[in-house]
Amino acid sequence: MAKYKTLIFILEGSLLNEKVAEQNALRQTLKLTGREYGPTERIQYKSLQEKTKLLGFDERIKLTLQEFFKNDWISAKGAFDNQLQKQDQLNKDVLPFLDEVKNKVNLILLTKEKKDVASYRMQNTELINYFSAVYFKDDFACKFPNKKVLTTILQQQNLTPATCLVIGTNLVDEIQGAENANLDSLWLAPKKVKMPISPRPTLHLNKLSDLLFYLELS
């Protein structure tokens, strides 16, 4: 059983409920344009999610907006981004898990958003208090899946790669980034979703609490 001493969380998805956040942002964007998010739109959105679930964040959002706003998707993106920044709902098992592992393993937070956006989304949560270091999009000259995002953190925090685990929900961005940096990864996704051939996460769990089995906590 692997002994992970450092857990590197990707804020968007592993901690913040991005599924709810994106759906709420879409609902509010439609409302701003005088449209409803009714039964037809929900079915349309669910069908689209099945087609885009393995895409990176930027491509997934682009296709979603193109589906709902057609030729006006670029102008809709500004409103969507603004609404997404207001979403701060945590996944339900996040705080109990963090309470369990705090002071027993090193916790590092990595966000894919700029500092002002990520900080705004976290301001009404207790998240920031759990982490020994926090990294924002502004801290890097590149973005996922470039390996330098994670190797920079390893170097700055003087971490041993073999004892680090990257926790994310997006295969194309986060799990591929961990693989590029030769780090173990946990893909948080429903069990019914098949484990991909590439990128291939080290662990595939549907609940963060299940990770406790893989940690040696004193």
Rank of each mutant, 00 (worst) to 15 (best):
K92M: 13
C142F: 14
S75G: 07
P161W: 01
N146M: 05
R60I: 06
N91W: 01
K102D: 13
K148I: 06
T163Q: 09
M122G: 04
V149G: 08
K92W: 08
D138H: 04
K137E: 05
Q157D: 05
A79D: 13
D116R: 06
Q89W: 03
K147M: 12
S119D: 14
E113D: 13
I108Q: 07
N103S: 09
C164I: 08
L84K: 02
Q123A: 08
F57T: 06
K112R: 14
F80P: 02
T111E: 00
F136V: 03
L63M: 08
E126H: 10
T125N: 06
D81H: 12
D139M: 03
D88S: 15
L98Y: 05
C142Y: 04
I108V: 14
L90M: 03
K77C: 12
A76H: 02
K86E: 15
K92F: 14
A133T: 12
F68D: 03
F140Y: 10
V94E: 09
F57I: 06
K86I: 11
F80S: 04
A76L: 01
A133V: 11
K86C: 10
L110R: 01
T125M: 02
L154S: 02
V117E: 01
I128P: 00
Q156R: 12
K143M: 11
Q85I: 07
E126V: 05
A76S: 12
C142V: 15
N106W: 08
K86A: 13
L109M: 02
A118P: 04
E67D: 08
N106A: 03
G168Q: 01
K62Y: 07
I61M: 06
I153T: 00
C142H: 11
T151Q: 09
K148T: 09
K62W: 01
L84G: 07
L154M: 07
L110C: 11
K102C: 15
K70A: 13
L150P: 02
K143H: 14
Q156S: 10
E59G: 01
Q155C: 12
V149H: 11
